[in-house]
Simulated scan of single mutants.
Amino acid sequence: MAGCNPDIAFDAFIFDLDGTLLDTADDLGGALNRVLADANIAPVDKSIYRPAASNGANALLEVGFGDKWPDVEQLALRQQLLDYYAEDIAIHSKCFNGIEQLLASLEQNSIKWGIMTNKPGFLTEPLVQAIPSLANAMAVVSGDTLAVAKPSPEPLIHTANMLDVDPTRCLYIGDAERDIQAAKAANMYSATALWGYIPSVDTALSWGADFNWQSPTDGFIHI
């Protein structure tokens, strides 16, 4: 749908979670550095773990362990990281600047909104519950809600069905290439969250989203 009218209004906004609605990098990085400490490996700086924060536990562990990653017990370390993260899931996590205002405006204008993330449900649910600004989400779909996750379009179509909105009248906002791929496959409009954990602006622009938002406030034009 690239090249569409920038002033189009939507019946529903659907958001990715990490790197789009919430800045969760420091809690994820904290869990990673606890795992690294247990393995007698030096902690990694925020500049290292932040770009991997949207890509799951394995991506975080890979940047932490570096060349050692192929030779370690990956499944055990992944579970260790998830356990540590679950213990302190919302210590530092918070909405990105502008998100609370965008969600409030959607609600004031009776535009439905929901969340579709690849994060597993046992982590998604307590995290969403810990952030008051997300309490009014009308649908929350996790990476294991269905048998498939993004970049499959099925979770986004499922979210649109929960919202009782035609997918073609939805806008999906995310900060990873799989988000844009999933939206395209679901016949949804897409917006790249350039404030998120993108590898680079140039790379993000190459994904071909319908919109590229510098800030959540860019969404006001579609309300």
Rank of each mutant, 00 (worst) to 15 (best):
119 K>E: 10
141 V>W: 03
101 Q>H: 09
85 Y>N: 02
89 I>F: 03
84 Y>C: 05
111 I>G: 01
129 Q>K: 09
82 L>Q: 02
81 L>H: 01
95 C>Y: 04
68 K>D: 15
83 D>S: 02
104 A>M: 12
156 L>E: 08
98 G>H: 11
112 K>Q: 02
109 N>M: 04
98 G>V: 13
93 S>G: 09
117 T>A: 14
134 L>C: 02
111 I>R: 02
80 Q>N: 03
78 R>L: 12
166 D>I: 10
70 P>R: 10
125 E>M: 12
106 L>W: 01
152 S>M: 11
84 Y>W: 01
137 A>D: 02
164 D>K: 11
73 E>A: 10
76 A>N: 07
73 E>P: 08
144 D>L: 08
96 F>E: 08
75 L>I: 00
155 P>H: 10
108 Q>M: 12
126 P>N: 09
119 K>R: 11
71 D>I: 00
91 I>R: 09
108 Q>V: 05
69 W>R: 08
147 A>W: 02
85 Y>Q: 07
80 Q>T: 03
122 F>Q: 11
76 A>Q: 07
157 I>N: 12
94 K>W: 09
106 L>T: 11
91 I>C: 08
82 L>P: 01
148 V>A: 14
128 V>I: 13
70 P>T: 07
103 L>D: 09
146 L>Y: 04
159 T>N: 13
149 A>T: 09
136 N>L: 01
160 A>D: 11
155 P>Y: 07
163 L>A: 00
100 E>Q: 14
99 I>V: 15
140 V>E: 08
109 N>Q: 10
126 P>Y: 03
94 K>Q: 15
160 A>M: 11
75 L>M: 00
113 W>K: 12
157 I>G: 06
93 S>M: 11
108 Q>S: 06
90 A>H: 14
63 V>N: 04
75 L>S: 10
158 H>E: 14
142 S>V: 00
91 I>D: 03
88 D>H: 03
76 A>R: 11
141 V>D: 05
165 V>I: 15
103 L>Y: 03
153 P>F: 10
130 A>M: 06
164 D>S: 09
79 Q>W: 04
121 G>W: 01
96 F>C: 10
65 F>Q: 08
109 N>D: 05
129 Q>A: 14
68 K>Q: 15
101 Q>L: 10
74 Q>M: 05
89 I>N: 06
155 P>M: 13
146 L>P: 15
132 P>F: 03
154 E>Y: 07
92 H>G: 04
133 S>F: 06
160 A>P: 11
119 K>N: 13
121 G>P: 06
135 A>D: 05
86 A>E: 08
159 T>Y: 12
